[in-house]
Amino acid sequence: MKLRQKSLYLVVFLILTMMLVACSSKETGNASNTTSQDAESTVEGSGSSNGPTSLTIMGGTTPGGTGDLVATIGENAARIAFPNAAIRKTPGGTTEVVTKVEKGEVEIGYGLPPSNYEAFHGIGLYNGEKHENIRFVLALNDPSYITILALESSGINSLEDLKGKRIGIGDGRTLTSIAAKEILKAAGLTDDIMKKSGGGILTGDWGEQYRMLGDGQLDAVISGAQHPMTAITEMSATKKVKLVPFEEAVLKKVIEKAKWYITEMPANTYDWQKESYLTIAVASHLITNKEVPEDWIYEFTKAFWENQEKVVWPVKQSWNGIDYSKDALIGNDDIIPIHPGAEKYYKEVGLLP
């Protein structure tokens, strides 16, 4: 009897032990599955295996303007490079963008060589505040030309004729508006002289200022953009307009202080513009902060240049079909350092030794 009871107790003990082992294995398996699922979820939430979960591109203050268009192509490249990331494009003037990038508040921004140079070295507009964290990513060599537009009936045929006139120079935060003031100053038209002569130098939205020009509220508008510019094309469809010529001596004074270059906007850029137009220009750049991971900028740069038909060509008709990659480094010879991620890509494709 006692032997039978002992055998029964042993059987019960063995059954309980097996049940406990089975439960323990199940919990361990569940924990392992949960960990695996969490890991998969983390990877899925990233733009790539090592990419960002979110990324901001900043540039442009006027829809359809140069900064806005270049920021748009940056956005297009980011969406290809990081398909699962939250990509956001936000507006900002050139000087504002450089400072935001410097502080790490945006990952990629629209910049121009003169502004980038002054910011990095802490001179000019950035006097005493060096922006040494900014880095070059790429250039789009569709020059932004400075133009002065007036109505054909205005009687304005030279820079001297602008004295006493109401001149729009666009958003005061942009490099173009700063260049516009330098041009007027080099021509002897300072703020004080303009006011005393009954004129004025006015800031504001370029689109609105072109409308004001057409309505007679302004006498001329100075702007910088890649041409043909939508606002000028639309205005010239209903108004007879002309480009006010620059004097080369004035332009030489301007480029002594800034990283612009003297060039000519080709004839027939607009159907009413029969001759080339002497002016100053600059290439558009995208910049980043030195702390943005190397692999992020490498993937972004690669996506940009190897998908131009999706990134660049659809944004502007005049860009369609043009391979800009050969000039990816133009205008950055002595401006700011190249980000290691971009440098890695340019070495791979032979643009850097």
Rank of each mutant, 00 (worst) to 15 (best):
F246M: 08
A139W: 06
K196W: 03
M194T: 08
E234K: 15
K165I: 06
I156V: 11
G172T: 10
I193W: 05
D219N: 12
A180L: 05
A186H: 06
L138D: 10
I193F: 08
M212R: 15
L218M: 12
M194Q: 15
V244I: 13
K195I: 12
Y145C: 10
G216P: 06
L159R: 02
D215Q: 14
K195P: 02
K163D: 10
G216Y: 07
I167G: 01
V137C: 12
T174L: 11
D161F: 02
L202Q: 10
A225R: 03
A231T: 10
R211S: 13
A220F: 06
K242G: 02
K242T: 11
S154Y: 04
G207E: 07
G164S: 03
G204E: 12
H227N: 12
L140A: 01
I156Y: 02
G172L: 13
L243V: 09
A179N: 07
K196A: 13
R173T: 15
L140C: 00
S158W: 00
K181Y: 09
G198L: 03
S154H: 05
R211I: 11
G199K: 14
G204C: 12
L213Y: 07
D192T: 14
G170I: 07
A249G: 04
I232A: 14
R135P: 08
T238P: 05
G216S: 09
I167E: 01
G188S: 03
S154F: 04
L184M: 13
Y145G: 10
G170S: 10
Y210I: 12
A225D: 14
N157A: 02
K240H: 11
I232R: 03
D205A: 13
E234N: 15
I201G: 05
W206T: 14
M229D: 13
D191E: 15
K163N: 12
L140N: 02
L162P: 00
K239E: 14
L213V: 11
L251S: 08
L162K: 00
K242F: 09
V241W: 03
L213M: 10
E160N: 15
Y145L: 08
D191L: 00
L140R: 00
L149A: 07
I156F: 07
S158I: 01
E182S: 14
Q217H: 14
E208G: 12
A180W: 04
L140G: 01
N141L: 13
P245G: 04
D219T: 04
D192Y: 11
A139L: 00
K239H: 14
I183R: 04
D219M: 03
L184R: 04
K240E: 15
S154C: 02
N157E: 09
A249F: 08
V137L: 15
A249M: 07
L175F: 09
L184V: 06
I232Q: 14
A231R: 09
M194E: 13
L162G: 01
V244E: 07
N157H: 09
I169Q: 03
G155L: 06
L184Q: 09
Q209R: 06
S236R: 13
G172E: 13
T230I: 11
L202T: 10
